[in-house]
Design a binder for these strands. Structure first.
Lengths: 165, 165
DNA sequence: GTAATTGCAAACCGTTTGCAAACCG
DNA sequence: CGGTTTGCAAACGGTTTGCAATTAC
């Protein structure tokens, strides 16, 4: 991703967004600004619906705007999809942060972030070998967290939970 | 995963399935057998629907049986989810195969598999540091394949295609 | 002014589920 | 036989989309 360039002044996420929009003939609207602010205000792995409910408390906004804005934030290098959890995609803001990987508990869904610098070299090697230009990577390590070891259900993993209305 | 244990006689996937089912008080039905065979007959990253359409040509089967059987095959260590592509989950059979990672073209969806033995150590280190028991990992490297470099649309990636009926 | 964007509601589509009939052990 | 599994069709739920009204530039 384009983040994490050290020795370089970091523009604010809003500037990045504004620039991206301008360069693409798109408009910098209050909705897009609010969504971007909200995304950088939280420091978790959020779903579109969580974002929607929080934003909704502060202003008028529709889910459609969220669904239409998320891909823009991704293309602008501000956020990325981190993983899919019971059918819903989870995102995190990445602009200005070191790249990191995720350790996931298969039983309870707990997430631990960790750095793995060696993956940069893996990226390079693979890209060279296959003629790709690399844009990024995603590493998930799956396992059982301390609390969930032993009480393992020997089953088919977490089921999708019913929506809590 | 439980695959890839060298110096050990490899049971056939059907035996593995039969054992798993018996140990769990479930039945070895012709449907489950057919699904398992089909999964090991193909060597690609398939969606449930692709599997369904192919199986359908050979025998009577319902989508529901597929959706109910896939989690069993996963729990039995025969297949795994590889990635999500325009909203659909793609799987591959993994039993009896060395673990590998995937290099994905963001533009056309092309997939290249590659081995990365060093990830075993990464798994171990992270697991130790956080007290997890590791079950496996998934590494995706994202980029542009040779054909798609340059013609890059500077956009929001591939859109979900309409179903081809 | 005018093309882009928003909100709404309906459509979409992959997946899950209730139920009666079929069937494995 | 009895509890599992199947197929069907309907339900679910996250995401996308058509459209008229609104708005950034």
């Amino acid at each position: 991703m384009s983040a994490g360039k050290e020795d370089q002044i970091l523009r604010s996420e809003l500037e990045v967004l504004r620039d991206y929009l301008r360069r693409h003939g798109m408009r910098f609207t209050p909705e897009r600004e609010a969504i971007c602010r909200e995304v950088f205000a939280r420091h978790d792995h959020f779903t579109v619906d969580e974002l929607y409910l929080d934003l909704r408390r502060k202003r008028r906004i529709s889910r459609a705007s969220l669904y239409r804005t998320i891909p823009i934030l991704i293309a602008a290098g501000l956020i990325s999809e981190v993983f899919t959890d019971s059918g819903q995609t989870r995102y995190e803001h990445t602009y200005g942060h070191e790249h990191h990987c995720h350790l996931l508990c298969l039983e309870c869904g707990r997430v631990v972030e960790f750095a793995e610098p060696s993956l940069k070299q893996v990226e390079q090697r693979v890209a060279r070998e296959h003629g790709f230009v690399v844009r990024g990577h995603r590493l998930e390590v799956h396992g059982l967290c301390p609390r969930c070891q032993g009480k393992e259900k020997e089953g088919r993993g977490r089921r999708r939970e019913k929506k809590k209305t």
